[in-house]
Amino acid sequence: MVRLITHNLLACHVKNCNANNFPLEFQNVQLEIREAEFNPEFVKGFLPKIEWKALVDTARQLGDTSLPNEQPEMLDDDFLKNLHHVLLEIHVEEGSMVCPNCKHEYPISSGIPNMLLAEHEIA
């Protein structure tokens, strides 16, 4: 499955595609929501490593508008719960991820993204 935690870490790696290759754009997605155990300490620990704008924009594309444009200074429980939901509970089961730069398409099938490239595409 591609959850947004994973999506926030993936980038296009086609040969010579080095700029504007993140975030990949979801297309034709089928979503599933699965509850995950809330661990506020984990969410706080991961927060500094998130590419925030990419996460907020992608969540909105998938229909979740709960996150603010800027990371808040006060990390209250409501915010952490919304972030937990966005990162860990929205599963993209089918569809694809497309590179904004070279348009390479990474298909997602039965929840597993295919990040393999053909031999000639590898850097």
Binding site: I5, L9, I122
Partner: peptide, 28 residues
Amino acid sequence: RHAGGDDVVREVVWGNVLENAWRPGAFD
């Protein structure tokens, strides 16, 4: 995907260990 029991779903990616599918330095 179901390592550790069917009630939890793991994140898995189909990829090649010789390729760089990640933002540089993204992981701890």
